[in-house]
Every structure is written in structure tokens, then in C-alpha cells.
Amino acid sequence: MENYEELARAISDLEEERAIGLAEKMLSRGVEPLRVIEVCREGLKLVGERYERREYFLSGLILSGEIFKEIVAMMEERRLFPHAMEEGQRRVILGAPLGDVHDIGKGIVSMLLRCSGFKVIDLGVSVSPSEFVEEAVRHRAEVVGITTLITMAYESIRETVSGFERAGLRDRVRIMLGGGAISQRVCDYAGADAWSHDAMDAVRFARMFTRKE
């Protein structure tokens, strides 16, 4: 009898070695890898809830993501990672705008989105407005996330949103902003759909934006 709850709890308690050990045991006993991933996501969801209650902070979010990454890496090493699960996933494009090379915040958002079942296409840093548009089209992404720490990137973000409008995609692609330099004022200025300083909000926005009626 597998104790799925125990694995979820180990992740939510950030008990790295215990969580990895439990996942390893389950896989060795032939539990479906997809089931293990689901349980891990349950654990990550609990971490997210504790983060929202301010029981955990960014360091906790990062650590839980690292635990998940290690479990996935273990599955990949054993050729067990269920790649089929990526099919049909909701897609999010992420990037830092032109002129900004900071990527730590974007990395955290990317990790949280992946852990929450999204397929993330990370375009990296200093991404031009046209690249955001082209890649969103290529990957049929429904959500674009732009993160920045610098005020000098405001124009580039605005230009990116305009680029989606000019391409006639604005009603199909929702744009969310994050990072220290972002505020409601910047969101209004750029014409984006949502903004936050909180990485967990990116997951909430992405879920909201991709929810089918």
C-alpha cells in the first residue's frame, strides 16, 4: 500500500531527502510515474498555500521546486518521465523584456508554472517585442509572462503588448507582468492584463487565463 499522503507531506514540509527517498521507493515498486508526479504536485500545492499564508517565503518556494526537479531528474535518469503528459498542456511563454538580463524571478515563476502542470517556453532574457509575438504564435501560447526589475524596460513591455495588438492576437493571448519594477501604474501604462510581485499569483493568473468556459 503506497502512502501518497506521506510524499505530499514530505514535500510540503520541505524534507528534501525524505521526499526523494519516498518517490524513489514508489518508482522502484512500480507505481506509475504519472501518479508520482501528481502526488508531488499535491505537495507543491500545499507549499503554495503555506507561502500564501506567509508560513513560507521565497526560499521555501525555491526549495520545493528543487525537490520536484530532483524527482523529475531521477525519473528521466531511469527513462520513466512521462513525456506524454506534456501533450495538451496549457502553454505559457516567459521572458525578461529587451534590456533586462535578470532571470532569477522568472526562473521561480517558470518552476511554479511547470510544477502546476503548465508547459513553459522560457525565452530567456532581453527578449525583443517581436520575439515574444513570434514565439507565442509558434507555440500557440495562451499566456505571456514578462518579468523585469528595471524601469528602463517599461517601453519595451508596452511595445510587446502593442505587438500582440498589431498582430491581431490580443484577444487570444493574455499578458501578465511581474518583478520589482512592476506596479498597477506600469500594468496600465503597458496595457497588460495582470501584474503581481508574488510568484504564486503567476500560477493563479495563468489558470484563470486558460480556464475554458
Binding site: R54, Y56, F57, L58, S59, G60, H197
Partner: peptide, 9 residues
């Protein structure tokens, strides 16, 4: 700051 660490840390 509390962006990174808890008040306890």
C-alpha cells in the same frame, strides 16, 4: 527582506 526569508530566519 521577507521577500526572501522568513522573519524567524
Amino acid at each position: 527582506s521577507n521577500d526572501f526569508i522568513s522573519p524567524e530566519t
